[in-house]
Amino acid sequence: MASVVGTFTVDPRSKAAKRRARGEGATGWAFVSPSVVIILGLSVVPVLWSLLLSFQVNDLVSPSEWVGLANYKALLKDPAFGSAVSHTLIYTVLYVPLSVVAGLAIAIALDRKIAFIGLYRTLVFVPFVVSAAAQGVLFSFVLDPEFGVANSVLHKLGLPAQGFFSDPGQALYLLVAISLWSGTGFCVIVYLAGLQGVSSELVEAARIDGAGRWGVLRHVTLPALTPVTIFLVLFQTINALQVFDLVFVTTKGGPLGSTTVIVYFIWEKAFKTFTAGYSAAAAYTLAVALLVVGVALQIYRRRVAAR
């Protein structure tokens, strides 16, 4: 059928059709304008506003003052920002590969037809829908040095009690572990969906050619899943670089600043010490970093797809 993109194939010579085609523009705009106003109004305007703020001193109340690049210069010299960046990087470098690799391994283990498989899948995935606030409150209790079940179990096993969130050497790694508990399930379901798309004929052909289980995995399954893997690495990295809720609920950036991540730093500067310009400069720095990661992975994805 020779339909034209965007309109129906109504006889264009009829007067009624012409009138309706003219009315279409108005209808189209009427349909999209609420979304356009809300989405662009609350994204484009704030993005430009933030850029202006980052060159100003602003306390969210009194009129702001233009200071040029002073915020960015101060940021580079601020040891608190430096350690927020390094905490965020440690968290990201641990969380992303571990969640993606564990997600793939668990997805492969769950990709079979045996009894209870639905139940296993549900249980692995269910922590993902639990909010970060609820996770944080739950683990604050589990890991409470005095009343928590974790130390109670260690005590039963004859092991020494731990400080957990009150120990600067442990807190950040515990946050990674909690995020793995809740975030791996997402990788599992995305990989499970991806595995359904791996051609069974290809797997069969590789088997006939004498490939073992590992051979099939390495040479057939993994290459077929590459787009899924790139997506997950990108998605998990973006989430990891923006981690906030869990930190706020469990450690508030402590102890001794050992879990202050970039977004916590940004929130603190804006809404606790009311240095919004400084905060905006930090937010812009993070956004540029996210953009670089995103673009790099997109280029890599294109190259893989072109191959």
Binding site: V36, L40, V47, S50, L53, A276, L286
Partner: peptide, 21 residues
Amino acid sequence: GLMLATMVIPFQLTMIPTFLV
């Protein structure tokens, strides 16, 4: 295109002006 592009804007970048709005 513009609307889809806004999906990549991190929330931290818009939260202060959104608060002011």
